[in-house]
Amino acid sequence: MPLKEAPDAALVVSKCSICHSVDYIQMNAPFLQPAGWEAEVRKMVKVMGAPLDEAEFARVVDYLTHQYGSDQH
């Protein structure tokens, strides 16, 4: 199942799927608030070594928040 189409979907696929399939994103939805997705991506960068620069970090968080974030905010 492909990720939802949006301008940064390709960036998310290229970075996240280095280590894991993107169903990790799909199954963790839609319940995370923006701070929740930011914490997940920060963990991937700081702990797991995901190669994202600051601009890419912001774009990935923005994509996840808008496409797979909580539907209750």
Partner: peptide, 9 residues
């Protein structure tokens, strides 16, 4: 389960 987990199952 979250709806996203059911959809991707």
């Amino acid at each position: 389960l979250p709806s996203g987990a059911l959809e991707s199952e």
